[in-house]
Design a binder for these strands. Structure first.
Length: 305
DNA sequence: AAACTATTCAACCGCGCTCTC
DNA sequence: TGAGAGCGCGGTTGAATAGTT
């Protein structure tokens, strides 16, 4: 026995919204608000639409200050770094990008960013293979092994994270330094919007089943799972710079490093509080601050590549 | 110019969670 | 405390459009 449908599908209109429907919905909400009940809303307005459809239309299209298309390089970096960190939590990722909706971010990732990353990776791997074949008779010292290892590492982490997110790896990704940046975490307030089930969650012992996202969202990582991941050395910092460049190159191609200034300046390790915020509002919408800028850098900072 | 293929993105669907009674 | 209603989210679909042959 399935769940009762939220609306009468026989009488509800589906498909693209007409300008008239948009105007009716927009005018009503701007004048009266949603009334806290999306299901009842279409009946009040006189729309033959499902309440969920109205909600989606408002949130993704009609709501004020919505941006469409033209994602900036900074937004690309945020999306990539957060996807690597938390996976396909599009609502959380979108909360970092003012004016962007989760649907937009999700579509952008699936149709462009992912292909751009993986496509460039594929192309360059092919070039590497050609180059390797051409020089196979020569000394391997001529090959830039460090660079190749770096490239492989960067993309493998992305791919690994994808797999981890999809499979909910029972080994617990918080124990995997390849997945988790060695950043300092801060306990979230209990009324955060990520996961209200944040009480009494403990850090899993090695081998204990617990997903990365559960710990991240619970905000209970406070130190314990990060033990052993100390501040990176200068060599690690150098590696961070290389890895950052690697991701930027994958995103934008060589010679277009949008974050060059931050690379040059280095990253202050340990200064970033992941997922911390001061406000008590359950609706989290961070502005793109210097702190969030460093999320991307922080992710890249701890790997010994 | 037509047929075919690839891409984009708005919208739908189903499920888990929270809230209310 | 359990059931039902509604909300919010992530995955998926499919129509429209763009690009290619």
């Amino acid at each position: 026995m399935g769940r009762a449908p939220c609306c009468d599908k026989a009488t509800v209109k589906k498909g693209p919204w007409s300008p008239e429907e948009d105007a009716m919905l927009k005018n009503y909400i701007e004048e009266h608000g949603t009334g806290g009940n999306w299901i009842a809303l279409p009946h009040k307005i006189g729309l033959k639409r499902c309440g969920k459809s109205c909600r989606l239309r408002w949130l993704n299209y009609l709501r004020p200050n919505i941006k469409h298309g033209d994602f900036t390089p900074e937004e690309d970096s945020i999306i990539c770094s957060l996807y690597i960190s938390i996976g396909s939590r599009w609502s959380i990722i979108a909360a970092q990008l003012p004016g962007r909706t989760d649907n937009d971010v999700k579509n952008y990732w699936n149709t462009k960013l992912k292909k751009r990353l993986l496509g460039r990776r594929k192309d360059r791997d092919a070039q590497h293979r050609q180059s390797a074949a051409a020089t196979s008779e020569m000394s391997t010292d001529n090959m830039n092994d460090g660079e190749r290892a770096l490239s492989a590492s960067a993309m493998e982490r992305i791919q690994l994270c994808m797999q981890l997110q999809e499979l909910q790896n029972p080994l617990g990704a918080q124990h995997n330094p390849l997945v988790w940046p060695g950043c300092r975490t801060t306990t979230l307030s209990n009324n955060n919007s990520f996961n209200s089930n944040s009480s009494s969650v403990t850090v899993a012992e090695p081998g204990q089943s617990c997903s990365m996202n559960e710990h991240l969202m619970s905000g209970q990582l406070e130190g314990a799972a990060m033990d052993g991941l100390g501040s990176p050395s200068s060599a690690e910092n150098s590696n961070m710079i290389s890895m950052e460049a690697e991701l930027e190159e994958l995103l934008y191609g060589e010679g277009n490093q949008v974050m060059a200034s931050t690379v040059d300046g280095g990253v202050q390790q340990g200064d970033v509080d992941w997922w911390s915020y001061e406000g008590k509002s359950p609706v989290v919408c961070w502005d793109f601050t210097p702190e969030t800028t460093t999320v991307f850098q922080d992710y890249t900072s701890v790997y010994d590549i």
